[in-house]
């Protein structure tokens, strides 16, 4: 699929899954989508390894936009990006946007075939 992929990263597995449900309701299967929540023990937190797996799962040649909730989710997502193959790193971004609204609007933008930069810009307009 050539639409930009969306990755949802929350401290809470339930919020990650619920946000993904809301995205699917909006865009169906037209956008590569993956989500992860919880630390390596499954408690509240995030996991670099799980984020890397989610990026792989939502990978698109046009890139992947990651939506995060709080601090650790952002730091761990940035770490995960650095561990990705070099040729992919430049096509993965963490959006500075609220998680739920950001994910839904980013996915909607992606479903219309927009570029990674446009998907990110639409999500980040929510924060401006």
């Amino acid at each position: 699929m050539s639409n930009v992929g969306i990755v949802i990263v929350s401290h809470s597995p339930k919020i990650a899954a619920g946000t993904a449900d809301m995205v699917r309701q909006m865009v169906g299967d037209t956008v590569p989508l993956a989500f992860t929540g919880g630390n390596p023990d499954g408690k509240l937190g995030t996991s670099v390894e799980a984020i890397m797996t989610a990026i792989e799962a939502a990978w698109s040649e046009t890139g992947v936009a990651i939506l995060v909730d709080l601090g650790g989710a952002e730091t761990n997502s940035e770490m995960a990006i650095e561990f990705m193959p070099e040729e992919r790193r430049g096509r993965i971004v963490v959006c500075n946007a609220p998680l739920v609204e950001g994910a839904v609007i980013a996915a909607t933008e992606s479903s219309g075939g927009s570029s990674l930069a446009d998907v990110r810009r639409m999500a980040e307009e929510l924060s401006s």
Binding site: N39, P40, D41, K43, G45, T46, S47, V48, E49, G71, G72, T75, N76, E78, M79
Partner: peptide, 14 residues
Amino acid sequence: LVMKVGGASGPLFG
């Protein structure tokens, strides 16, 4: 530490 801590402390101390 990066892989197993599960919070921002993982990447920071890692």
